[in-house]
């Protein structure tokens, strides 16, 4: 299929639907919500939108270095593999809840997974 995953999943409306669902899960998860404690909600939502757009292979301008810089402060205060796994869990659960087919979820998860080293500063 020549369409991008982003288009097949449903483009921007799909991203918007996913972001709110996902962000509620993250804020309710005691394992990771401390990393979002002081964040401005509106700015966070915009960042989550960018994250989902990227996970769906849509238009984004994030480089590995951007991901590194953006998360460096969180790595200093203890961001680790477990936290990354928790976020991956919520990504999968969100897409499942939105009835995205399993093969597309796997594709999105693989893209998100590819940022692991940069996010964790390894």
């Amino acid at each position: 299929m020549s369409n991008t995953l982003y288009e097949r999943i449903g483009g921007e409306p799909a991203v918007n639907a996913a972001v709110e669902l996902f962000y509620r899960k993250v804020l309710n998860d005691h394992r990771i919500n401390r990393f979002f404690e002081n964040a401005d909600m509106d700015k966070q939502i915009a960042k989550q939108k960018a994250f989902f757009t990227m996970a769906f292979g849509g238009p984004n301008s994030y480089t590995g270095q951007d991901m590194r810089n953006a998360h460096a402060g969180l790595v200093k205060v203890g961001l680790n593999e477990d936290h990354f796994n928790a976020v991956m869990e919520h990504l999968g659960a969100t897409l499942t809840e939105l009835n995205v087919p399993g093969d597309l979820i796997a594709e999105a998860a693989a893209i998100a997974e590819s940022t692991r080293k940069d996010v964790l500063g390894k």
């Binding site: 915009a46 960018a50 984004n60 301008s61």
Partner: peptide
Amino acid sequence: ACKKGTCH
């Protein structure tokens, strides 16, 4: 910043 309509 982003020039993609994301960061506002």
